[in-house]
Nucleic acid binder design. Structure first.
Length: 593
RNA sequence: GGGGGUGUAGCUCAGUUUGGUUAGAGCGAUCGCCUGUCACGCGAUAGGUCGCGGGUUCGAGUCCCGUCACUCCCGCCA
């Protein structure tokens, strides 16, 4: 028998009664009755109640012992009387009558309690992450993360995928996010970059003939954090396959997601077959390329209404004349909602920096009319036309946003979420996956007005490759897709462009010469010349998958040792200053501010 | 880089709107009482740079200015 324990704290039942056991764990909680002490011992597997009374010579010492001290106890398993059984824990029908104990790891006064459901300030949790991780919820989240990863590995292997590791020290690439740079000692003045994703490597793996690859891949991007975005590093389930079309990738990912989400959650899957929505439709109907399909509200374009003679809403008409658009959301049978509901939405829109949201409710008082602050500007015929476009009925309400397209989309997509929340239209107990497909290959950069890749420069354009019209690049669509769940973008992927000549042409559209492409993407472009198979893949964000399955809104709740919003590790004190000697070796000098 | 929120005992928070005697509560800690609790109970004690700096005032936790930390959002994230 192991010297520390014969059993864990989660496994003893009345079947073990009478036996002498050795348990080790943390003191979760004490209940001191003066001459009788209850002591809950906790380990990874559960909690066992231990008991000692004043007859025992160790009693006085155990009475004084600090919570969270690690101790080993020797004792006898005793069945509890029926009225003292605790149904909330697995070991609740027994307790351990302590014979002796030994301190294995002493504990000072705690900076934060472990046994408590209270919430704590983030900096204390992060500084004492090892204490935070002992707490039930985070402990379970991190265990869940491990089980999810094992399950994924298992299923991917069953599907015939091979798992490989790709380099962490690699080269900086000009596209995408800001790189983390690592100075090279052996090559002074030169830098490695940490990979933003193993994009080129996974394609090189296909060109190397491995056919199907996956990796739980660390990715590094030096961008600012959000609640659902760790600063610095995160993990992707990186997948790449050879000789595939878009549908082959979808098949694998849909299968995996269905298995995964059904195994680890009881929430309902709204779609067994994930809907495919084109990028264009998604922007029109949801104002976003990551729509929450649990939300039934849809957006319609009403710009044409504001060119009509019989509509007198001059503010919107003037804006439309100068190039603005109008998008609207219909809410069903909201005629009896209080004024505060409508004004609340308007105020919310103003808080978002918009000029507000116009609205009216459709009534039929002898004649069709619109009720609300701007209702009087609409003729009966124009209201009928709106009802036709929006499939609206009497008693429904319409919310309008009018602005330049980009601003309208920003407001109306969040208004769609806000209104649905207010009306409680979202079924929180469900998952709604969808695919967003047919992304444009190129877009115009708002600031520079220059043309650029809208997603991934390595994506394959759609259509007959010999007939692509490079003079109208904005019309070129790509085999580029995103998978979205409950409004969260889990991943984007693409069928890759494996034809070097086509690659040069596409890069020339954004102003890269052939030699520049050869220099910047040396690894992949060179390899494409030596027999590259058609291939494609995807890379779902692992942290976000765990967040969805653990029902958490913040990525730190599913990350073992997270950094704070300023990308600092408060426990390890990173980043930190380094010795002058280290800098010298690297040929670096810190510029004083 | 910009905007919002928060900052008071080891921890969680009240007090700030309307400035006024000695800044409170629960948990935790320490001491005492208690043999069936599982958020045990009861009593007592200790514990405070009200984030920091400056200002207004007879008087500032409270008002003003600045600054720092944490957090949420925008920008950014192919």
């Amino acid at each position: 028998m192991n010297k520390y324990r014969s059993n864990t704290c989660g496994e003893l039942t009345k079947k073990n009664k009478g036996s002498e056991v050795v348990l080790s764990g943390w003191i979760n909680k004490k209940r001191d009755h003066g001459n009788l002490l209850f002591l809950d011992l906790r380990d990874n597997y559960g909690i066992t109640q231990c008991i000692i009374d004043k007859e025992n010579k160790f009693f006085k010492n155990l009475e004084k012992i600090q919570l969270e001290t690690v101790i080993k106890i020797v004792g006898e398993v005793v069945e509890r009387s029926p009225d003292t059984i605790n149904k909330d824990i697995k070991t609740g029908e027994i307790e351990i009558k302590i014979k002796s104990y030994e301190v294995l790891g002493a504990c000072e006064e705690l900076p934060m309690p472990v046994f408590s459901d209270q919430e704590y300030a983030e900096d204390i949790r992060l500084k004492y992450r090892f204490l935070d991780l002992r707490r039930k919820k985070v402990h379970e989240n991190i265990s869940l993360r491990s089980k999810i990863i094992s399950f994924i590995r298992d299923e991917m292997t069953k599907l015939g995928f091979l798992e490989f590791q790709t380099p962490i020290l690699t080269s900086s690439s000009p596209e995408g996010a800001r790189d983390f740079l690592v100075p090279s000692r052996l090559n002074p003045g030169k830098f490695y970059a940490l990979p933003q994703a193993p994009q080129q490597f996974k394609q090189l793996i296909m060109i190397s003939g491995f056919d199907k690859y996956f990796q739980i891949a660390p990715c590094f991007r030096d961008e600012d954090a959000r609640a659902d975005r760790s600063p610095g590093e995160f993990y992707q389930l990186d997948i790449e396959m050879s000789f595939v079309e878009q549908e082959d990738v979808f098949f694998v990912v849909e299968k995996l997601m269905l298995l995964l989400f059904k195994k680890f959650s009881t929430k309902k899957m709204l779609f067994e077959k994930f809907p495919r929505i084109t990028y264009k439709d998604a922007i029109l109907k949801y104002g976003s390329d990551k729509p929450d399909l649990r939300n039934p509200l849809e957006i319609c374009d009403l710009t044409s209404i504001f060119t009509r003679e019989d509509v007198k809403f001059e503010i919107f008409k003037k804006l439309v004349k100068s190039g603005s658009i109008v998008r609207a959301i219909k809410t069903t049978n909201t005629k009896d909602k209080p004024r505060s509901f409508f004004d609340g939405i308007d105020k919310w829109a103003k808080d978002q920096g918009a000029s507000g949201m116009a609205y009216f409710t459709i009534e039929n008082d002898k004649e069709i009319s619109a009720k609300g602050p701007v209702g009087k500007f609409f003729s009966a015929n124009s209201i009928k036309e709106i009802m036709k476009i929006m499939k609206a009925n009497i008693g429904d309400s319409i919310f309008f946003s009018c602005n330049k397209e980009k601003e309208v989309l920003k407001l109306i997509s969040s208004a769609r979420d806000k209104i649905a929340q207010e009306l409680k239209l979202i079924n929180e107990n469900s998952f709604a996956f969808c695919w967003i497909v047919d992304y444009p290959m190129f877009e115009i950069d708002e600031n520079t007005k220059k043309i650029q890749f809208s997603h991934n420069p390595f994506s394959m354009p759609q259509g007959d490759l010999s007939k692509i019209n490079f003079s109208k690049p904005l019309e070129i669509k790509a085999y580029q897709y995103d998978i979205v769940c409950n409004g969260i973008e889990l991943s984007s992927g693409a069928i890759r462009n494996h034809k070097p000549d086509l690659m040069y042409k596409l890069f020339s559209v954004v102003g890269y010469s052939k030699s520049e492409v050869q220099k910047k993407f040396k690894g992949i472009i060179n390899a494409l010349n030596y027999g590259a198979p058609p291939h494609g893949g995807i890379a779902p964000g692992l942290d976000r998958i765990v967040m969805l399955l653990a029902n958490e809104k913040n990525i730190r709740e599913v990350t073992l040792f997270p950094m704070n919003q300023n990308a600092q590790d408060l426990m390890m004190d990173a980043p930190s200053e380094v010795d002058e000697k280290q800098l010298k070796e690297l040929g670096l000098q810190i510029k004083k501010k």
